[in-house]
Design a binder for these strands. Sequence first.
DNA 1: ACTATGTCCTGCGAGC
DNA 2: TGCTCGCAGGACATAG
Length: 280
Amino acid sequence: MPELPEVETIAAGVNARIQGERIKSVELGNKKESFRTSAEEMAAGLTGKRILRVYRVGKHIVFDLAEGRSKSPGAQWIVHLGMTGRLLVASPEVPVPLHTHAVLHLSSGRELRFVDPRRFGRLSFLDLGDGRDSKKVPFQGPGREPLTISTEDFLKLFRGRKLPIKAALLNQKLLHGVGNIYADESLFRAGIRPAKISGKLTHVELERLHKALQKVLQEAISLGGSSVSDYVDADGAKGFFQLEHRVYLRTGLPCRACETPIKRILIGGRGTHYCPKCQH
DNA sequence: ACTATGTCCTGCGAGC
DNA sequence: TGCTCGCAGGACATAG
């Protein structure tokens, strides 16, 4: 489940490998659910464009694309990895994995492949036009960036809400980029029970959560993210943050702080892990 | 305006 | 050993 730190790692890895390359041709699969923009429109839009830059917005990977030698993006390719999506840069002789839904043939002769067994991932193409149409704005993501949001704005997002704080953290329209791992991990580090109602958190608790979330995300980015199930970054290397998990998927194991067994409950249908002694 | 629930999809592991 | 079955979850549609 690639979340913000994993997507950041992958985007940086892809950028380092293919920045500046031109997309010579495109092959798209027939699994319609993978495409938010029709395959025809996407293939036509991508073909011939140059990749200016690859970066992360929320859990999305954004490719800024330009025509010819232009340095301003006239279009964007947006990749959401869903649960099991992967972006691989490979030579043509490397066998194409099962569940490959898109292949971009690049000017270097290599291929950028989008592989996604579960098909929760989504590809979209955004035409930005010549920059004069105010409706054609660059992709901004559904919510606010957790790494840069101010404490004041963070407090506003969660005040007055009647759902569990864990569910609120997962809502991408509030903060984008936080998923199940980092929701659980940040709540542990802030000492807050995941089932606690968002609107009942005190000012102090929300400040602690804001700090804890930013810290845990930054720590994870510096370790290359978590590789819990089938996430592999652009190098094919795995991240190491899972070694730092304090509660996520540690049901029944002793809390790293107090040795109380970690509990697992369901919140909004999601597995949720916490320490009953450290979190209140 | 919010919040809750069901759905999509494949791989994996438990259980027989 | 080999099979079935239930579960995992991010985003979105739909319902309340």
